[in-house]
Design a protein around this nucleic acid. Structure first.
Length: 1120
RNA sequence: GCCCGGGUGGCGGAAUUGGUAGACGCAGCAGACUCAAAAUCUGCCGUUCGCAAGGAUGUGCUGGUUCGAUUCCAGUCCCGGGCACCA
């Protein structure tokens, strides 16, 4: 009978459906096993052949585990919120819910064809309100928690509040993010807003300012993906960094636990390594370097009376403040009409910054001030001369105190409030800021993090983080990150212009560009700091190689011990003091930790360890720093100014973020008329009146919100009382086997680990790592066909005519490589659809016929032609031999994507070859963890294999199985195969499994084996790979149950024993001949026999034998 | 730039982790069957010298360790992924 896979698939699918074979119960006598693969984002392009790679791999494992007697949970769902659906909505006006639904239906249809053993009754999508109700609910739990450093876990915020109510808050004892300690009594005296602001500094989900990609022209925030070369992908408009109020998850509190937790996980070492590097724990010290007196003017800092901390944000001294307080209060009650207008427009962080009114600064009470931005806003009354003079003095004094002053008249405010607010906004954005916790580097453990300074006295010192405090005597300069606020404050008048130029240059560059920059760039600020031990002045530079988000955003540069510092010092001709005994640093620096220190005062003669201990003691004693653990990881931004995501169950009341009651969840996404951004660049929700009337949060959650906990939902997808049913959670526990692309190695995995830990800390689940075993699949890449095109004769342009110096004729020209040198232009490579390429003699071509077809079917290529003699002459190039029939294409291996026209659809493969062949071929391509290009050509081999396998069961059109006793040879190949398949499935080496199946079937075919005792176990072995054909044959040969419930065969070594081995015999490592010896033969006898052999004698060329190497069962080597 | 992974025939890859490099498959070549084609089967198939027997050479590149290196070490080049708002 001929193998008809289409019929078989039909029939087997029916059988599966009738018996509901993949339905999994939440209880069983069998041990549980949870297999999960990263669920897909349902894109409009449908699945391509790369997606199923991981699904098939997991499916094989899930089926294998089931054969091995486990109750296997193997679910699938959709990560359905995301940017592409929204972009599509913007372009076409179709609601993302509609397109997503359509895409999901298509995905499901495609997935169903592959024969995956999913329990589809557990399917869900993250964009379903029934699902995101619980995403919102979990967010509320995170919002309502803080990280208690004493218990080292998350706790409900109420435990923090009761602490404040009973003992207050001491920054010495707490890992506090706030500037000042307060007593219990003070806490109780704070307003609701003040209390809320303080609690916000502790919540695991909190609001803070962060920079976003802002595109003024589009009036919207752009994802990194949408920014190309500094301009928006859509339209090519400029993109700048802009601060916005955003939600964050305080994942940094979990840094240590995320790091330690890795040790307990069965993940590949590179994966763990990537996470370790992302978390980036480093031990070192924070050290304060005082600035030279010329800058701080020696005025000294105001100290808080209770401790040695400076008053971070105090704007005047205590005495003056007390004196001015009643006046300020009075003034607030009696605001002028104009002041009232402004106040209404700026209060409650409306402009993204806290603005205070009638506030004491130095000896003045100013109308409005943004302390954070050091900006004073004054409203001028009637203008007369005396007033003008007074205002000038006031402005100067405020300027001296470090404040910028902007003034508006009553008329301006009344007549054109918009303009006034815009001016304030501009001023707020351009002015210096005090570092927010974010800018200071969230990973910083100590409350003394950040560059410290005092408002009324200017900057006092620069604080650095270093991992090598032992090298401090090698420090010859300092570097501050360009975006660090310190820059504005310490730069001298002479250097101001140059620094501004440099900072502007850096701002125009993306982070990636900055990081990838090889060239050394930087600029001197004019300021100097004092070396804390030698008192030598150290010049302070600004350079892009110092990142503001890491450590304190400032470093002590040690050229002798750090390559970037070394390169910088060389470039700017800065002194490079050598501090390593016996090491020459004339050519390059020394980054190892093994040298002895010299030229280092009290550290001389010490090694790394001793010196580090010593210097830490010294800086502690001098009170200029301390040991510190720093993390590279930052808190996770959790807001998106988008529509298609989970709405936050948050509303605002008097500027305080408040939670919606649980019974109002889910807060459903409302329908919107358009997907354009809100008036201030907020998400589209800001355009809905009913939404803003309720003061609901207008941001939505990011893509990873839903995927951070989805693995829990599969356990009890219908549960409506909780995010997961407790019993189900206890039964299934953590995922045993998780599979997904390595491109998710950090982001998704870290966030879901964090969520799991939070849920665990709060007592909702009884495990704190989500994925016990993690497997990364490589990508299936596409082969793209690139054609060379000349840009000066481009799609949108025309032919450049040197005579008229104009571009004429709209035409595009594809050329061959050979013409390149002859043409006075550069080419660019353009993708053309892969199905238009013709393969001939090892090369790919685009023929004239195919070009015509391309032009007809793809309007984008409508104007394309091959280079002709005519065009050459128009370009003023001498005509040369041109083939006007075809051009050579350049095959390039890259990501499969619609825009690259290189997508291969699994449906086509399955229609042509069948699902089993498709599954096996995907596995046959190579190890799953490696990326490899898809090439349909090889699929024939697997297809042939399955036909051969099928034919073992049939003679002519009849199923003919024999019940005869198997021969030893037959048993041997069967048991070899069982052994290999069992071992290789566990190793996930599926490609070698397929090879072994082929070897096995080739041998059985040669033996003409049709014995049930051989073929029946083979059906079970092959089932995980080819579920359709095996299920069908299993039934055909008379079994009642599904093959999936048959136990996995076990191999018996007795069929595999060999008693002799053909040894390769090498002379000096070069294999010359093979000789057969019994495996139990005596080594001495073998040696005698080998040496007596004529061929061996010939190759030994009469030289005496030095050594005889005999490895039993492997090889023999004669050394002469 | 930094972190992770990978470079083996024309192509995908294998090699029991230091022991016969190229299993298995694709493509190619030759043959059988056939009126013919498809399908199927058999043989050959890294490069190079040689009619052959056989020899030399060969796992990105340069060195090192070893009786022996695709495998271990040092350096270097190239490709892929990630770098915090694509998913």
């Amino acid at each position: 009978m001929k193998l008809n896979f289409a019929n078989i698939e039909q029939e087997v699918k029916k059988l599966w459906a009738v018996k509901n074979i993949y339905r999994v119960e939440n209880k069983s006598d069998k041990p549980k096993y949870y297999v999960l693969e990263m669920f897909p984002y349902p894109s409009g392009a449908g699945l391509h052949v790369g997606h199923p790679l991981g699904y098939i791999a997991s499916d094989i494992y899930a089926r294998y585990k089931r054969h091995k007697g486990f109750n296997v949970l193997h679910p699938m769902g959709y990560d359905a919120f995301g940017l592409p659906a929204e972009q599509y909505a913007i372009e076409t006006g179709q609601h993302p819910a509609v397109t997503t639904e359509k895409n999901i239906a298509r995905y499901r249809e495609q997935l169903d064809k592959i024969g995956l053993s999913y329990d589809w009754s557990r399917e869900f999508k993250t964009s379903d309100p029934k699902y995101y109700k619980w995403t919102q609910w979990i967010f509320l739990q995170i919002f309502n928690s803080w990280y208690n450093p004493e218990t080292n876990k998350a706790e409900h915020i109420s435990t923090l509040i009761s602490k404040f109510e009973t003992i207050g808050c001491s920054i010495k004892n707490q890992k506090s993010k706030i500037e000042n300690s307060f007593s219990a009594a003070e806490w109780k005296s704070f307003s609701e807003k003040q209390q809320a602001d303080i609690l916000m500094q502790f919540r695991l989900a909190y609001l803070a300012d962060a920079e976003v990609n802002w595109c003024e022209a589009l009036g919207t925030v752009l994802a990194n993906d949408e920014v190309v070369n500094g301009v928006s992908e859509r339209g090519g408009h400029p993109v700048v960094k802009k601060k916005m109020r955003q939600w964050f998850l305080r994942i940094t509190e979990y840094a240590d636990r995320l790091l330690q937790g890795l040790e307990t996980l069965d993940w590949s070492e590179p994966m763990k390594e990537m996470q370790r590097n992302w978390i980036g724990r480093s031990e070192g010290a924070s050290i304060r370097f005082d600035l030279t007196p010329t800058l701080s003017k020696g005025e000294g800092a105001i100290q808080s009376p209770s401790n040695t901390e400076p008053y971070g944000y105090e704007t005047t001294d205590a005495k003056t403040f007390e004196a001015l307080k009643p006046i300020a209060r009075e003034l607030r009650k009696n605001q002028t009409e104009t002041e009232e207008i402004i106040w209404e427009a700026v209060r409650n962080n409306q402009l993204g910054f806290k603005i205070r009114r009638q506030h004491a600064i130095e000896k003045f009470i100013v109308d409005f001030v943004c302390i954070e931005k050091k900006l004073v806003i004054e409203i001028d009354g009637e203008v007369h001369l005396k007033q003008k003079e007074e205002d000038a003095i006031r402005t100067e004094a405020l300027n001296l105190a470090g404040f910028k002053v902007i003034r508006f008249t009553n008329e301006e405010v009344k007549n054109n409030l918009q303009v006034v607010i815009q001016k304030i906004k501009t001023a707020l954005q351009s002015e210096a800021t005090t570092p927010s916790p974010l800018e200071r580097g969230q990973g910083v453990r100590s409350n003394e993090a950040g560059t410290s300074f005092n408002l009324s006295n200017g900057v006092r010192s620069v604080e650095v983080f270093t991992t090598r405090p032992d090298t401090i005597f090698g420090c010859s300069f300092m570097v501050v990150a360009p975006e660090n606020d310190l820059v504005n404050q310490i730069t001298t008048a002479e250097q101001k212009a140059e620094i501004e130029k440099y900072v502007a240059y850096v701002k125009s560059r993306s982070d990636l560009e900055r990081m990838a920059e090889k060239k050394i760039t930087g600029c001197f600020t004019g300021a100097f700091a004092l070396h804390p031990f030698t008192q030598k002045p150290l010049p302070i530079y600004v350079s892009e190689y110092v990142l503001n988000g890491y450590g304190t955003g400032a470093i002590m540069a040690v050229p002798a011990g750090d390559s970037r510092d070394y390169a910088f010092a060389t470039h700017f001709e800065i002194d490079k003091p050598n501090i390593f005994e016996g090491i020459d640093i004339a050519e390059k620096c020394y980054e190892e930790k093994t040298a002895t220190l010299c030229n280092s005062d009290f550290l001389n003669g010490m090694d790394y360890k001793t010196a580090t201990q010593k210097i830490l003691q010294e800086i502690k004693a001098k009170n200029i720093g301390q040991r510190k653990i720093n993390f590279r990881m930052r808190d996770a931004g959790f807001s998106r100014q988008r529509y298609w995501g989970e709405p936050f169950p948050i509303y605002y009341e008097n500027g305080i973020a408040k939670t919606l009651p649980e019974n109002e969840l889910p807060l459903a996404l409302p329908h919107v008329a358009s997907y354009s951004p809100g008036p201030e660049g907020q998400g589209p929700l800001a355009n809905i009146k009913e939404w803003t009337d309720k003061n609901l949060e207008t941001n939505t959650m990011p893509g990873y919100a839903g995927s951070s906990w989805y693995f829990l939902r599969y356990m009890s997808p219908q549960e409506d009382k909780a995010f997961v049913n407790e019993e189900a959670m206890k039964y299934w526990g953590a995922v045993d086997f998780y599979n997904g692309g390595s491109e998710h190695a950090v982001g998704h995995l870290l966030y879901s680990r964090m969520w799991t830990k939070v849920l665990h800390d709060l007592g909702f689940i009884n495990f704190d790592e989500p994925f016990k075993k993690m497997v990364n699949q490589g990508m299936i890449q596409g082969i793209s066909m690139m054609v060379r095109n000349i840009p000066s004769i481009s799609f949108d342009g025309g032919i450049y005519n040197p005579d008229s110096n104009k571009v004429e004729n709209i035409i595009s020209v594809f050329i061959d490589k050979g013409f390149l040198e002859k043409l006075p232009v550069d080419d660019i490579l353009i993708h053309i659809p892969i199905d238009f390429a013709e393969f001939n003699g090892g090369k790919y071509y685009l023929t004239k016929e195919k070009l015509q077809e391309l032009k007809n079917t793809h309007p984008r290529f409508g104007n394309v032609n091959f280079l002709t003699k005519e065009i050459c002459s128009k370009l003023g190039i001498e005509a040369f031999e041109i083939s006007e029939d075809k051009v050579e294409l350049l095959p390039v291996v890259e990501k499969m994507s619609k825009s690259k026209y290189n997508v291969v659809n699994p449906d086509d493969m399955i229609a042509q070859y069948g699902a089993d062949t498709f599954r096996m071929y995907e596995m046959f391509l190579g190890p799953i963890e490696l990326s490899k290009p898809w090439d349909t050509k090889g699929i024939e081999g697997v297809s042939r294999f399955l036909r051969k396998f099928w034919n073992l069961f049939f003679t002519e059109d009849k199923l003919t199985l024999s019940d005869a006793e198997p021969t030893n040879e037959e048993l041997k190949i069967l048991h070899q195969t069982i052994k290999k398949i069992d071992a290789d499935i566990q190793k996930l080496a599926y490609n070698t499994c397929v090879s072994q199946f082929m070897i096995c079937v080739n041998e059985l075919q040669a033996m003409k084996c049709n014995k049930r005792s051989i073929l029946e176990p083979l059906l079970v072995l092959l089932n995980p790979f080819a579920p359709f054909i095996t299920e069908y044959l299993w039934k055909e040969i008379g079994n009642k149950n599904s093959v999936i419930d048959a136990p996995f065969p076990t191999h018996d070594e007795k069929y595999l024993v060999e008693n002799s081995f053909s040894y390769p015999i090498a002379i000096n490592g070069k294999t010359r001949i093979n000789m057969e010896f019994a495996l139990d033969a005596d080594a001495k006898d073998i040696e005698t026999t080998v040496l007596a052999d004529a061929t061996i004698q010939k190759f030994m060329e009469g030289k005496p034998m030095k050594k005889f190497i005999f490895v039993k069962g492997r090889m023999i080597n004669v050394v002469v």
